[in-house]
Amino acid sequence: MEELEPLAIQTDIYLDWLLGGTIPRDARDEPTAELRRTAEVLQRSLVRFHPSFRFEERLADRLRAEATGQPRQLGSVIPFQGAAPPASSDVHADGRGRGLIVGGAIASGVSIAGALFVWRRSRTGAAPAGTEQAL
């Protein structure tokens, strides 16, 4: 290993230049041309990757929750923008509109649709459309 060290130092210096983007013109011919070429191929091949946005944000949420010592929220409150002005009952005392909880909204929608379906059936006494066809 000791006999390799001078060569390794030259390689290290060359990598510093290469990765720093400044190779002096008067640089000596060490390391060898073959090693220089390989070093350049690796510079193009060994790129840095970025995780997906979704992963990065999910982990950021988890770290935030950990930092504040609070459990993670399953849904987050998003101000509903671009809609008609809220009814007066939807406006808080400070003037903010009611938020929309993403994640809970789907379940609520399904429940409302189910309740509506039962209510309509009880009023008309009709079988669901699919059932009629089957009969």
Binding site: L4, E5, A8, D12, P31, E34, R37, T38, V41, L42
Partner: peptide
């Protein structure tokens, strides 16, 4: 630090051999 330089140097040499 020296051992790391040698590791990198050897790694480059191995890759260079394969590229030949």
């Amino acid at each position: 630090e020296g051992a790391v330089r040698v590791l990198v140097h050897r790694a480059l040499r191995s890759v260079a051999e394969r590229l030949k």
